[in-house]
Nucleic acid binder design. Sequence first.
DNA 1: TTTTTAAATGCACAAGAGTTGCATGTGCGT
DNA 2: ACGCACATGCAACTCTTGTGCATTTAAAAA
Lengths: 143, 143
Amino acid sequence: MNDSPSSTDSIKDTIRAAGLRATPARLATLQMLREADSPLTHAEVADRLAVDGVDKATAFRNLNDMTEAGLLRRTELGDHVYRFEEIGPGESDAESHPHFLCTVCGTVSCLDTVKLTAASERASQAIGEVTEILLRGRCNSCK
Amino acid sequence: MNDSPSSTDSIKDTIRAAGLRATPARLATLQMLREADSPLTHAEVADRLAVDGVDKATAFRNLNDMTEAGLLRRTELGDHVYRFEEIGPGESDAESHPHFLCTVCGTVSCLDTVKLTAASERASQAIGEVTEILLRGRCNSCK
DNA sequence: TTTTTAAATGCACAAGAGTTGCATGTGCGT
DNA sequence: ACGCACATGCAACTCTTGTGCATTTAAAAA
Ligand SMILES: [Mn+2]
Ligand SMILES: [Mn+2]
Ligand SMILES: [Zn+2]
Ligand SMILES: [Zn+2]
């Protein structure tokens, strides 16, 4: 019986490589985010860790610390909660991908690439440099 | 000495036409939003009304009530605060325009139109119907 | 103009998200 | 195995937004 691809040890190494101690709470956090296919809210992470006796303050601090350490990306999708997702190896913090937030059910989807038309690109550059695009609307399950 | 283009009376009429009573707090609120060229946070509105003795709960309720009445649009730009802007005559609540939020200074800019490339349009439609686009980045003053 | 009444306000209190201070516990380099 | 910086638990706290209730007021009716 071998370990799963993202074995406990490999996760520990990832955390240590970021300069953080591999504590049980951090292990569980990163594992959770690694298994999720969309960013999770602090509440989702904290609730699940709570059953293991982890305090919500610890969950918060870990999420933030791991974000500062470059392991996670924190996104704010306009519904007043922070969401966290793992930054894959090689990927950088800066190169974030766009997200789609369904304003009906709250589901978040990660998108690959979203580009603006040349005209829109120009118009937006008159204001500033766009580093993040967020789309909101009604997902296909909510039509 | 005649009144300004958006005279007090015309603002009162706008509020009454929406089915709400034209109270001093609402007058001041709408006037404020009308003079602003980007959406204002509840705090910005409440702080200014506070000097006139208006309670913050009242400021909140008015902002929300006027939004429900179709006078304002409430936007969430991903920085955990609600912003409000007037919906011009003729304009509908649904047809919102895109915004740009500077992640450095927090400044919000209203954009006219932002379109996605055909390919991006297709990719996003696989997820759902996009009703709102939010751009985030670094404004030209913050470079 | 006066009366009437539903709508609006003030004040105090509360809920939810996120943060912080501090004493205690533990990962991990030595 | 030891020691210490780092991490945790717990409680208290900030910030944004919302609510209950008694009182006031806008505006319609008389
Ligand atoms: Mn994502
Ligand atoms: Mn706007
Ligand atoms: Zn949905
Ligand atoms: Zn800026």
